[in-house]
Every structure is written in structure tokens, then in C-alpha cells.
Design a protein around this nucleic acid. Structure first.
Lengths: 209, 209, 209, 209
DNA sequence: AATGAATGAGTATTCATTCAT
DNA sequence: CATGAATGAATACTCATTCAT
């Protein structure tokens, strides 16, 4: 009920609040069309304060990518290499869920931003490769290796190109980015892919479907 | 006495020359960072004349997308439904070539532009769906159907989701857009995919590989 | 009576018009307090056009210094070395006039700007030394030498330090810059100096005054 | 356990510490380019505290000028009128030293600041005239009068325009401000001037040099 | 038809100043 | 007394678009 105080004095939270607001703004508008003033307004701070924490719009952008990416990659990659469940169970469970969630996740936005602005920020691209793409592919490779080692899977090209495992999720991401998923049922797409994938990996050969 | 132009441009060529220059500029810089003056300079015309043909930068952008997309979709889709070669031969031949070429083709650039600017141009997105994505998927579906009809292929989920056939090419496109293909060998990726795909489609079951 | 046309199309004159306006603005406000928008308004052009001719405010500043300085140094230095009149006559005539005019001349403004902004523009300082200070001192040295050669003057320290000849004019400039000449009668100051100077240079020794 | 400050500043010293820091900052950057935050940091206080003592940046500037100027004018002017040494000895000794020291002294900086910012602070200009320029000129006039009275000097224009006595020092100051004295040997310039000056003032007429 | 000079709205960034703590 | 987080007005610079020639 009271008018919000002019000064909030929340030093520790500010950077996170600002990157969160910036993420939303970049997600909606893209980098070039996002106004620093919008970000500040959305974060509930003045432009001046934003510039205290981030020296330029570019710095802010890089901080956003890092802040979005880092906390999200660990969970899945760690689960992939744990022995808590069989490789197939992991693929049918957590991995499928991850792939279905991908188009609506912040990662999709980051992919968009990397496509748009990557060429102007090679260091960010490297960062993204090292911390997301590369680690994700390694985790998938380790997952397949575990399945093969455990007698669940046969040897396949997927070991070499785990990209093929994620490819349909990438399609789903693109459809989301371009068509806002008006044009494909991502969940069914992923389900179909998982079926095909496991049939292919399975040592027991083709199920009679 | 007068410095006559190298060759006298004919009025009819101008729009095409301008969209070609615009495509190159958008490809290099992205929409927001492409300057109209750059496009005009590259096309060898004045800004004023460019504005005679395209009333705004947006108009120009839409014209570019249309001009790039339309001539490129027909060849493949027509070949896909012809009976000149078996479905498998088509997949191993023209389709594989198309997928390998995709990351370096103008379509990749258009995909990038659709991701970046699509939300501001819903009509373009519709146009892109109608003329590229939708037609491409239909052609793939027809191809699979032909294979099934001809006894080459068994029934699979690919009929329902031909997206899965193109998915690795989409991954390759994304890697090109983000990493300039420093990070994956697209050709081998596609080859591996085609092998897996045909093994899956084949009625004769798994090769002993 | 007619409203002034929106476009004037005077390409050749623009840079000079703009530097003239910029000179006035810098003179009044100093570099830091001069707004580019003020300069443009005073020049009767838009900010955008100003930036067509001068890529930054700094560029504009340098152009101003050059445009003010160059045309003004030649007249005097050339006269100093001509034999049209005796050295003493030159000092009593043109040189005295020049010194009296200095505080109110654009050179005084340029001196002010060099003091204020010189440290941020070492190349301008060099330019100023090469084209104004150094050339002026050389001309004075040549003048003294001519007087000595012609038997008008005796050998004095002024040959080595012609700065001493100009020093009172420099005082007058400083008084103008700081006190707007509310505090000293520059003309009488210069007259007194010229008298002392010529008495000193004269071979015939001290007049009985 | 607590990191106690190196020494406990006493409240009374603060304004002086701040003006000292401000002087250094203004000297290095000029008024417009000096940041209040820099001054505070250099003074070892917070911006907030600085604003307790000086309500605006302008106030601070005026305080700086006053604090620099006042303590420095007294010594010389008092010595000039004392009878401790002959007028000529005073000129050859203390006055010459003062003139040689001027370009490197805080007064030079204050002159620069007066030139740059004077027009925005007429009261400061008046203060500077009353406390520095005017008093200095009076002291020089008194010095000449003492020499004349004591039979050392003849009557000259210097009585009326003691500015002429200081003029070469002013030149030296300007050269320092603009060229950082890369371009003139100030000491020799002053020595030459003093020789000429005393030859001129001397009742005994021209030395045979 | 063709030009490019001219415009001005729009935006990132800075910094003197305030005030809750 | 002391702090420094927070503010926002001010300003250099850009670029799509127009229009006199």
C-alpha cells in the first residue's frame, strides 16, 4: 500500500535481478531491439544503476548468457553419467523430458541469441561451446558408452555423433523459435524419435513394433 | 567525355540486383546491423533509387526472403516425387547432397533471418511455412510413401514425422550459424544419419554392419 | 518572406559554415560545454549533416583549430621578412598592430582551446607549434637579424629569445581571456613595450626620453 | 581485528584534504573532466562526505582556487616591499626565482582554470584579481618605486605597466600549459629577460655587454 | 529515372547529486 | 558523522527515410 521506496539498497541481489530482466527483454526483442532503458525498467532500477553493474550493453548480454547457461547444464549431464538407472531408462525418462522441455526453456532463447549475436562475440561462442554444447555431447557419449558397457546397447554411429540423439530436439527448438510451435507437436516428435532411437540402439534387434 | 557506366543497367533488373545485394548484406550483418546505404552501395544504386523499388527496409527484407526461398524449393521437392530412381537411391543421392549443402546454402541464412526477425513479420513466417517447410515435409512424406508402396521401406514413424529425416541437417545448419562449423564435420554427420535412417526404413531389417 | 527551404543543397560551403559555427560555439563555451546540437543549430544544419562532414566532435574541434590558424599566420610572417620597410618601421607599424589586435583575435580563442584541450590532443599541439608558434618565432628572429644586418639594431638577447618580443602581447591575451580586458589597457601596454623594445635594440643607445 | 585507518583523520582537516585532492584532480583533468568521485577517492572520503563540505562541484572548485591562491601570494609581495635588500638584488634574487618557478607552480594551474572556467564564475575572477593579479602588480610597482627612490633605477614605463616585468614569466607559463615546456628553456628565457630589464632600469645606462 | 544531401527521432552512456542506512 | 547505492537529466552519435535537384 505504501509507495515503493525510492531507494531499495539491495546490492547483492541487483546483478541477478538485472540479468533476469535483461534475459526476458533479450528473449522478447532480440539483442539489437532490446533497449537498455527497458531492461532497467523491468528490473525496477534506474539506467544509471544498471551501468554500475554492467559497463556496457554487451557486458550485460554476456552476463545474461552466462547466468542462464551455467546453472542449467549441470543437472542433466550429471544424471546422464550416474548409475542410478539403466541407460535406456535414462533416455526414456530424464533425457526425454529434457528434450521435450528444451523448446520452451531459456536454452532455446540463448540459442537464438547465439545465432543472432554470436558473430559479434566470439568469446561467447567459445564459452557456449565449452560449457553447453561440448559438455552435453560428452555426456551423451558417456551415456551410450555406459549402455554398451552394460550390455544394453550395441555399437552404433551414435557414439561418434551423439548430435543425432539431440537433433530432433534441435528441430523442435527451431520450430518454436520460428513458428512458436504452431506447426509441430514437439512432444510427439520427441516420442517418435526416442522409439526409433532405442530400437536402433537395442541389442535385441527390432521389436515387432 | 562523360564517364559512362560500365554497362547500362536495364530497369527490369534493378529489383533483382537490389535484393541480391540485400541478401548478401543481411547474411553478413543480420537485419538490424545491415545498413540500407550498404545495400544500395553494393547494388550499385543510390539510396533514393532503392527506395523507389522498396518503400521501407522491411519491404526490402521481405522481398529478399521471398526471392531467396522461391527458386530453391522446387527442384528438390519435384525430384522427390518422381519415379526416376528408387526411394533409397534418392535418399542416398540427391537428398543426401541437399542435406550436406544446406548449412552453406542461402536457406541457412534465411533460417537465421526467420529466427531473428520472424516475430516482427508473421506474414513472412507464414510464407516461409507454406513455401518451404510445409512443402519440404510433404515431399518427404510422399517419398517415404513411395518407398513403402514400392516395397523398399517398412512402415515407420518417419511417415508421420518426416522432420526426423531432416533433423540432422538442421543441427548442421545451427552449428554453421553459431560455430561456423568449426565444431562438427557436417558431411560425416549426415552420412551417419543416412545410414541409420536407411537401416531403419529397410524391410530387410538390420544389416550385420 | 518565403519559409526557408528544408533542403539547401550547398555541399561545398557546408564544412566551412560548420567550422565557423563551431569556432563561435567553442569560443563561447569551451570544448566540453559546447554541444554538438548548438553548433549544428548555429550553422543552420541538422546534427546528422554535421556528422556527415565531421565524424566526431573531436574531428570537428581539430578542423576548427586548423581552419582558424592556417589563414592567419601567413600574412604577418611574410611581411616580417620582406624588405619593403625598415625593421624598426615594421615593429612600430604592422607588428604593433598585430600585437594590439591579438587579444581580440581568433588566435586568442585558439590559445585558450589549446590550453584547455591540448593535453587530450597532442597532435593538435604539434600542429599548433609547427604552424603558429614556431613560425612566428622564426619570423621575429629573421626580423631582428635583418635589423642587425642593416645596421638598425645592435646584437641583443632578443635574437635568441624572440619570445620576449611577444611576451606583452601574451599578457594581453591572458588578461582578455580571464578579465575580458576590464583590468588592463592593452593598447598602452603594447605601446610602452614597443618603446622599451626599440630603445633596447637601437644602436644609438638610450634616447634621453 | 578491525582494519583501522592508517591515521585517524580529524574532522577539521577534511576540507583541506578534499581541496588538496580536488586541486590535483582539476590540475590533471581540467574542471569538466574531473569527476567528483575521483576527488573523493583521492581524498580518501566518500562522495557523500564530500558533499557535506561542498554543496556542489562548483563550490568545491571555488574553494580550491581560494585555498591555492591565498597562501601563495603573501610571501613574495611582502618581500618585495621590505628594505632588507636592494631593489636590484631583489629582482636578481627572489623575483627571478619566483618567475622561474611559476610555470611549475600551482599558480600556473590556477591560471589555466581561470581561463577555462572563469567566464562561468565572475566572482572567482574578481577574487583572483583582487588577491593575486592586482596585489602582485602593486608589489612590483612598489618595488620599482623603491628602486627609483633609492637612486638605483631611473624612471621608466615599467612603473606604469609592471605587467611588462612579469610578461616573460607569463609566456613561460603558457608554454608549460600548452607544450609542457618541450619547446622553450624557461630558465634562460627568464635570465635573458632579467638582464634586459635591469639594463633598462639602471641609471648608469647600458652596460657594454 | 536517379542522386545523395539533408533530416531528426531514437539510444547507449556518463556523472553530479541525493538519501536510506 | 559517514557511506555508496541509487537516480535521471543530459548528450554524442546513428541511420532509415525524404526530396530538391
Amino acid at each position: 500500500m505504501s509507495t515503493s521506496p525510492r531507494y531499495q539498497r539491495r546490492k547483492e541481489d541487483r546483478p541477478a535481478e538485472i540479468t533476469a530482466a535483461a534475459f526476458e527483454t533479450f528473449a522478447e526483442k532480440g539483442y539489437a531491439n532490446a533497449k537498455v532503458a527497458d531492461v532497467a525498467r523491468r528490473a525496477g532500477v534506474s539506467k544509471g544503476l544498471l551501468y554500475v553493474y554492467f559497463k556496457t550493453k554487451e557486458e550485460l548480454f554476456k552476463a545474461v548468457v552466462r547466468s542462464v547457461v551455467i546453472p542449467r547444464v549441470n543437472a542433466l549431464t550429471e544424471a546422464a553419467v550416474s548409475d542410478a538407472e539403466s541407460a535406456e531408462a535414462f533416455i526414456r525418462g530424464p533425457l526425454r523430458q529434457f528434450m521435450k522441455a528444451l523448446p520452451g526453456s531459456p536454452i532455446a532463447i540463448v540459442i537464438k541469441l547465439m545465432i543472432t549475436e554470436g558473430s559479434r562475440h566470439p568469446d561467447l561462442v567459445d564459452f557456449y561451446w565449452d560449457n553447453v554444447a561440448s559438455r552435453g555431447l560428452d555426456a551423451l557419449r558417456a551415456l551410450i558408452a555406459r549402455g554398451v558397457r552394460g550390455g544394453e546397447f550395441r555399437e552404433t554411429r551414435y557414439s561418434e555423433y551423439p548430435h543425432l540423439i539431440m537433433a530432433p530436439a534441435v528441430v523442435a527448438v527451431l520450430f518454436e523459435l520460428i513458428f512458436k510451435n504452431q506447426r509441430v507437436n514437439s512432444d510427439e516428435l520427441i516420442d517418435s524419435h526416442i522409439d526409433i532411437l532405442l530400437e536402433n540402439l537395442s541389442v535385441s534387434g527390432r521389436a515387432e513394433t
